[in-house]
């Protein structure tokens, strides 16, 4: 196992760099290095579409993985992520409300509203999850699915009544084909969230050991939970508003990194972010080439890849036990 860790890091790091370059080159229009130098249109395409898209994927992947990690720490359960616990659906509810009430609201205002509802939705989930018996670890993910399903149904109902179903589709099915320069820059906030999570990495690690150990070590547990909730809500709602819901990244990546490197977040957290970015970028590229020149949404690709990885994690667990 110890020898596998540096290898895994190398694979993930070089994978991210390689995929980043590859992502810039893939598309309907031919884009090779020699053309960028000679062709103004190619450079334009790179700066307006390919680069923003690739950066957006990397930021989203890193952000979603961190949101999943933080939520798993807050809930003390490894089988949850923001989309399976109502956070994503609450965010969608917020965007829907703003779209109905203030149709001309900016994307920033929508994100703010989505963050507020996501924060409320996640707080309610967390409060109820902490009341569930800890002896039944699978109750929490199950409850999360039901809870998220109820909020999602409310979103669908309201959208159906108000003829906004197409919009809801955009928020719930994540994909990056619409990302252009000028339409993704809010995602840089995700980078700030990742940095923030790293800054409090020790406190998150202690929080993962539970309230009593945290209090015993003098950590303000309540405050770290509040901070974590804000991080989860902001990351999830940014993703929903800008690119739409993307499943599995937040669920699978923290588990993978935990298995390989453990839960000491001072060292593991950057790798959660990098692995999330790599996984999402790989799936985005697969979605772009598999039916070239058409695209399959990245969420669909992740559905397949992510569930495969998740099964591998589950069975790996039982083998070791």
């Amino acid at each position: 196992m110890p020898a596998a860790v540096p290898n895994a890091r190398l694979v993930v790091a070089t994978g991210l760099v390689g995929l980043f370059a590859l992502s810039l080159c893939i598309g309907v229009d031919d884009m090779s290095l020699d053309r960028i130098g000679t062709n103004a249109g190619a450079l334009q395409l790179l700066l307006v579409s390919r680069l923003p898209r690739t950066v957006a994927v990397v930021l989203t992947g890193a952000g979603l993985a961190i949101a999943g990690l933080v939520l798993q720490i807050l809930v003390r359960n490894r089988f949850v992520e923001p989309i399976t616990t109502g956070t994503g659906q609450s965010a969608a509810l917020g965007v829907l409300a703003v779209t109905l009430l203030f149709p001309t609201a900016s994307i920033g205002a929508k994100t703010l509203a989505a963050s507020a509802t996501a924060l409320a939705g996640t707080s309610i989930f967390l409060a109820i999850a902490h009341k569930l018996p800890p002896t039944q670890p699978f109750l929490i993910p199950l409850f999360g699915l039901v809870y998220g399903g109820v909020i999602g149904a409310a979103v669908t109902f309201i959208a159906w009544q108000t003829d906004l179903l197409q919009y809801v589709d955009v928020w719930t099915n994540g994909e990056f084909s619409g990302v252009l320069r000028g339409r993704y820059e809010l995602l840089w906030i995700l980078a700030a969230m990742v940095a923030l999570a790293w800054w409090v990495a020790d406190r998150l690690t202690i929080a993962s050991m539970g309230r009593e150990v945290s209090v015993g070590l003098g950590l303000d547990y309540q405050r770290i939970v509040q901070l974590g909730l804000v991080m989860v809500a902001v990351i999830s709602s940014l993703a929903v508003v800008v690119v739409g819901m993307i499943p599995f990244v937040g669920l699978v990546v923290p588990n993978l990194v935990s298995r390989l490197m453990g839960d000491n977040l001072k060292s593991a957290l950057p790798w959660v972010a990098v692995t999330g970015a790599t996984l999402l970028l790989a799936c985005d590229i697969i979605g772009r080439v598999i039916r070239y020149p058409y695209e399959i949404p990245v969420g669909t690709v992740l559905g397949v890849v992510g569930s495969g990885l998740f099964l591998w994690i589950l069975f790996g667990r039982t083998q070791r036990a």
Binding site: S208, M209, G210, V213, L217, G262, N264
Partner: peptide, 18 residues
Amino acid sequence: PAVASRLKVRELVGFGRF
């Protein structure tokens, strides 16, 4: 205490200094 985090023994003991 039911610590479920995958920490190494040295890391866990080190958190006593937090």
